[in-house]
């Protein structure tokens, strides 16, 4: 539309009394075009899948709720939850060590991060899985004496599941600690000073003032990590952990129905990811207290952000 044509059509022929005009909001034609296009593409793709004989939806349906699938889902969920538990707790400890004034703690945390981020995760999991080959027995005592408090063969202490947990959780702690650290650093220094000024100890300040505010920054990337962990759990196949993908791979290595079983895996991973996204959105809303409501905050448009002038 040229500027000239629009100015011709928009010029009112007769003056209308101000306040009497009807207001018509801007029309978003682009949205309708985009919606039609997206719908067409999605239905074409769905149709092609539906008609594709290689997909074999009967096999998909048969295995979607089969025993090995469900037990695999359970293991995957257990591993994700527990490994993220270890990861998050470890991450907070490492982040606090990195930010402490104690140079020894800083060095230890740096060394931990250096090692666990610097070696491949697959190798770490294999090492934990075959820890018995490295150390036959776990012995806790006083070196140079015959005093032993505890002794057991490694293989009974660290089974496949525990090895998988350690391999996933300890690695996660190293990565997630940087997320926690950036969250803590994002809290304005004045918050700490105000807390100290009313007589709070540094420990209490961290727990009551800094960490709750850093959550807003920590949650989105931590949600990323959790979803990523959900799929990384499949690495434990190398130490015969029975997670979802490993169980399905075992099936198709015998039946050769690769595509349908991988579709089963995708359906379950997508389902679990969806649940995690919903949980993440809830947690995010909880920790956005005092900033703005979630909807306003996630909008990119400037007019969606209100009341930020007086905020700190």
């Amino acid at each position: 539309m040229s500027g000239r044509a629009s100015s011709d059509t928009l010029a009112p022929p007769v003056p209308i009394e101000p306040g009497a005009e009807r207001i018509v909001r801007r029309r978003h034609y682009g949205r309708w075009v985009a919606a039609a296009l997206a719908l067409a593409l999605a239905s074409a793709f769905a149709f092609s899948l539906w008609r594709n004989p290689n997909v074999n939806r009967h096999v998909v349906l048969a295995y979607l709720f089969a025993g090995p699938t469900l037990s695999g889902v359970l293991v995957t969920v257990e591993l994700t939850v527990l490994a993220m538990g270890i990861g998050v707790i470890g991450a907070v400890i490492l982040a606090l060590m990195r930010l402490s004034h104690n140079p020894v703690l800083v060095a230890v945390a740096l060394a931990y991060q250096w090692f666990f981020r610097g070696t491949p995760q697959l190798v770490q999991i294999i090492f934990w899985g075959f820890l018995g080959a490295l150390y036959h027995n776990v012995i806790i005592g006083i070196p140079g004496t015959r005093i032993v408090f505890f002794s057991a063969p490694t293989s009974t202490l660290v089974g496949a599941f525990v090895a998988a947990l350690l391999g996933l959780g300890l690695n996660e702690a190293a990565y997630a600690s940087e997320i926690v650290r950036s969250g803590i650093l994002s809290v304005h220094r004045g918050q700490v000073e105000a807390a100290l000024a009313v007589g709070m100890t540094p420990r209490r300040t961290m727990r009551r003032i800094v960490l709750p505010q850093s959550m807003r920054v920590i949650i989105p990337p931590m949600g990323n990590e959790t979803i990523s962990m959900l799929k990384t759990t499949s690495l434990v196949s190398v130490i015969s952990g029975h997670d979802l993908l490993t169980n399905l791979q075992n099936i198709y290595s015998q039946t050769f129905q690769v595509i349908p079983l991988l579709i089963v895996a995708c359906i379950w991973y997508l389902f679990l990811t969806t649940i995690l996204s919903v949980v993440q959105a809830r947690i995010e809303r909880r920790y956005s207290r005092g900033v703005a409501t979630g909807r306003q905050r996630t909008r990119l448009r400037p007019h969606g952000i209100r009341g930020t002038r007086t905020s700190q």
């Binding site: 004045g190 000024a197 009313v198 007589g199 900033v291 700190q312």
Partner: peptide
């Protein structure tokens, strides 16, 4: 130190109210 600071109240240029609290 925290106990000593109880005797001294402080008001800051940037207020420094705890943003996540009413």
């Amino acid at each position: 130190l925290a106990r000593q600071r109880l005797a001294v109240g402080m008001v800051f240029q940037q207020f420094n109210l705890f943003a996540h609290m009413t």
